[in-house]
Design a protein around this nucleic acid. Sequence first.
RNA 1: UGGGGCGUGGCCAAGUGGUUUAAGGCACCGGAUUCUGAUUCCGGCAUUCGGAGGUUCGAAUCCUCCCGCCCCAGCCA
Length: 559
Amino acid sequence: MSDNPKPVNFIRQAIDDDIKTGRHQEIVTRFPPEPNGYLHIGHCKAIWLNFGIKDDYRGRCTLRFDDTNPLKESQQFASMIEEDIRWLGYEWTSLAHASDYFDQFYDYAVHLINNALAYVDSQSGDKIRQQRGTLTKPGVNSPYRDRSIEDNLSLFEKMRNGDFEDGEHVLRAKIDMHASNMNLRDPVLYRIRHHTHQRTGDKWCIYPMYDFAHGQGDAIEGVTHSLCTLEFEDHRALYDWFIEHLPVPSRPRQIEFSRLNLNYTVMSKRLLTQLVDLGQVAGWDDPRMPTISGLRRRGYTPESLKNFIASVGITRKPNVIEMGLLEKCIRDDLDLKAPRAMAVLRPLKVVIENYPESENELIDVPNHPQNPEHGRRQLTFSREVFIERSDYEDNPPKGYFRLAPDREVRLRHAYVIRCREVIRDKHGEPIEIRCAYDPETAGGKTRDGRKVKGIIHWVSARHAVSAEVRLYDRLFSVADPLADRKRDYLEALNPDSLACLQGCKLETSLDRADPRIRYQFERIGYFFQDATSRPDALVFNRIVSLRDTWMRKSQHSSN
RNA sequence: UGGGGCGUGGCCAAGUGGUUUAAGGCACCGGAUUCUGAUUCCGGCAUUCGGAGGUUCGAAUCCUCCCGCCCCAGCCA
């Protein structure tokens, strides 16, 4: 268990109230995904809410797959969803499917028919749509609305028996075609779909709609608080109508909250599916995707995701959360957990002219600057090292305290070096820096007490391990890719969201690195081995960069 | 021009008529510490709660009107 304070929000307040008034002794929630895609960080909010309530109130939470539409669903998606929830660290009290209740739902439908509260409509979908009216115009009654109970019963049974083609008939609730709430204008309860269901096979050729399955499923499971997102708000009246008119075993209450939106990405399953299908990303688990599997592959931890949701909170207010908050959460988590290492992503060779050619020096260093429990390791120092290309400037801007002609800099954990000469290629680009080191500067001190402000990371050229490193940036280059309705959101895709760097140089200790460990490559960011990484061909993903106040400052002054 | 919701600093968000002349986090801006320009630390950052009226000794919290934004017209969920 975490030592985080219990979250407070309007839903928990309602639950506290229900307990106080004795309305409920046990709290039951459910997480009800449709198995038609992968979970994203928005689902994480619902998972955190429902499973968090279950844990804190010692209640129950079922994972229920809302599998009422066999056209789009698959067992593979269901399996991925289970994996994601487990990875987040939650356990469901029971696993269920809407399809487990198909027989019961059928009986409920018959019950409605018997009470003259449902009828079989034999019009086309187009016709039904026309008759539904508009937001400002009421609908009109179907000519089949007053069929006899006997006719309805026999027609509905024939629908079930497969006597009709798809679309020939539907079962509708008889409510009110004049209702201002569109959901109450005789909603469709069952449609004919001659399609094999991933679980019930060909047992059924009629399938209940969401509205006719969800609340009843909740009631059957004894769900006390059915938590869903705001777009279902208008469905609540229908939800309650079914609960009221059906002999259900319990009376759940639906409460809505606002969904999570993140800037610089998209969050709808439809759009994410499209990005995958179009090949704009490598798959559902592409590390740039806001999916749980993408974030996992990128290197995000479950704790960071949960902390993120907790800090965002639960309200009914539409919101767009800044990506920066997510990044802050993973940095916080990893700062404590991640052992440090040195890696040079864009190598520039430095030759230390006064260091003996054949000599190697072992330097014992801590794996974490604050926490000794992370242990220690050894670095090898030698005459030739790689430094980051960006740590050398021919014409250093004001405030730059890295390497430059005739300037000094400290090689982290090692010596102070001074730049003596720069060797260039034919374009004038530096390809090698010749330096001299000061042997009196080991151990973080200088003999004469002079301050060397710049500290840069390095890797011994002879001992370095090569690796591929993948750098990720936001998927879209604008905060709200859907803001411009005249433009396709795909045009807002960030062309530089992925940079694959080959030939990066890692310190020796990273040879055959444990793929489960997230490292901080000092001064660069947090890194995690990609799913494709192998011991002899390391591939690291950058989870997130470190805060970089220098870059921010230098960008400011250059603007 | 129907119905349902929502509006507290750049982004979230506490607040449920008086102890709040509005918590906290993120972002941002200073400064200190630091062998990571990281971390940590310290300080700054809404006389005001979409707007205008009103009720009250007292309002972000109650009332009225107005404005803005979101959702709903699938045999999707």
